[in-house]
């Protein structure tokens, strides 16, 4: 049975993710200034912000689509292409910089054969840089799927990557 319309046809004709997002938007309805949280929810659901989703958010929230796009592209948290299964964030903070964060980034780029901002061909890893994770005491650090790895050297990189599927 189709979960969106309840009719007996076999194939789903509505995207379940879209239904979920619609529910989230409904939850924020009437609350001023909720575009950013809604976009965050959308990214949680889709893993990134597809164009169609931004259009839907604009329509549902009665916000011009140019503004939705403007807001989404302003904040570095939002992505517009799908990510790999694991997201690696390399901290570019001051403490990490003076303790060799760049070398860790280079090692990751070499190991994964991609540049920062890209995703590996097998869809396993996305490599990003972030301003500061706030774990300066452990510099240099990276986070993979929000788990922080500290006191790194470039030699430790392959070992850490091995742990991820």
């Amino acid at each position: 049975m189709c979960q969106s319309c309840g009719k007996g046809h076999k194939d789903l004709h509505v995207d379940l993710k879209q239904i979920k997002l619609k529910e989230k938007i409904d939850a924020y309805r009437g609350e001023a200034g909720s575009l950013i949280p809604v976009l965050q929810e959308a990214q949680d659901i889709y893993g990134y912000l597809p164009e169609e989703t931004m259009k839907m958010v604009a329509k549902e929230m009665k916000i011009p689509v140019a503004e939705v796009f403007g807001v989404a592209t302003f904040y570095s948290q939002f992505r517009f292409t799908p990510t790999g299964r694991n997201v690696i964030r390399v901290c570019m903070g001051t403490a990490c910089h003076v303790r060799g964060g760049l070398k860790v980034l280079k090692a990751l780029e070499r190991e994964l054969d991609i540049k920062a901002g890209e995703t590996t061909g097998d869809g396993k890893f996305t490599l990003e840089t972030v301003a500061c994770i706030g774990a300066c005491g452990l510099a240099p650090v990276i986070s993979i799927n929000n788990k922080v790895f500290g006191n790194l050297t470039s030699e430790m990189v392959p070992g850490i990557l091995e742990k991820f599927e």
């Binding site: 903070g93 990490c96 301003a131 500061c132 706030g134 300066c136």
Partner: peptide
């Protein structure tokens, strides 16, 4: 919004 790279007291 402690964005200063190198500060984490607020966190």
């Amino acid at each position: 919004d402690e964005g200063d790279p190198g500060a984490f007291m607020d966190r």
